[in-house]
């Protein structure tokens, strides 16, 4: 389908606009599965702020982008959590993952997860990697299950 190969790198200054678009799309995508994920009217604005934050985040998080030639076509955003009472203290959680529709099914999302895993293990000394997504997102569930992830934490929700 696409003969040009893609590559993965950390998000850097200058990626803000493209990254913001992907973040916005990620939230819109999840909105389809659960109304509790409905985006705000200023979601694109918030996505821009987030993009800047992701690019400049320090030890606790990192953002990766996938490029096809010069074009940013996908991203993954990962945060590190500490649970002091637990034996395995540190946990890397992929909070967001998105690839543009026309660049799907060529392994970009898998490579983003592999790279997040590598950084978490080799650079941050984390032993577990997790992924967070709406329970109803069957696309994400299938994706992570196929990559040997298993259900770990359940979050239940109700209106108050």
């Amino acid at each position: 389908m696409h003969e040009v190969s893609f590559h993965i790198r950390r998000a850097v200054s200058g990626d803000e606009e493209a990254l913001a678009d992907l973040i916005y799309r990620f939230y819109r995508f999840n909105e389809e599965f659960d109304p509790a994920w409905s985006t705000t009217r200023n979601a694109l604005e918030v996505a821009r702020e987030r993009a800047s934050r992701y690019i400049s985040c320090g030890e606790g998080c990192f953002a990766l982008v996938a490029l096809m030639g010069e074009k940013i076509v996908g991203y993954a955003y990962t945060e590190i959590y500490e649970a002091e009472m637990l034996e395995e203290k540190n946990l890397a959680v992929i909070k967001e993952l998105y690839v543009l529709p026309q660049y799907r099914r060529i392994g970009i999302a898998s490579r983003l997860v592999e790279e997040a895993e590598r950084i978490a293990r080799e650079e941050l000394g984390v032993e577990y990697i997790a992924a967070q997504f709406p329970t109803a997102n069957f696309v994400a569930e299938k994706f992570y299950r196929n990559r040997k992830f298993r259900p770990f934490i359940s979050i239940y929700l109700r209106e108050v």
Binding site: R25, R28, F29, E32, F33, P101, Q102, V139
Partner: peptide, 25 residues
């Protein structure tokens, strides 16, 4: 078209239209 605002919705709700959008660009 792959850049249509509702493209992800199509992927979930109408994968046949989604496929056309992706293939025809």
């Amino acid at each position: 078209h792959p850049d249509r605002p509702d493209i992800d919705k199509l992927m979930i709700k109408h994968p046949w239209k989604y496929q056309v959008a992706i293939e025809t660009k």
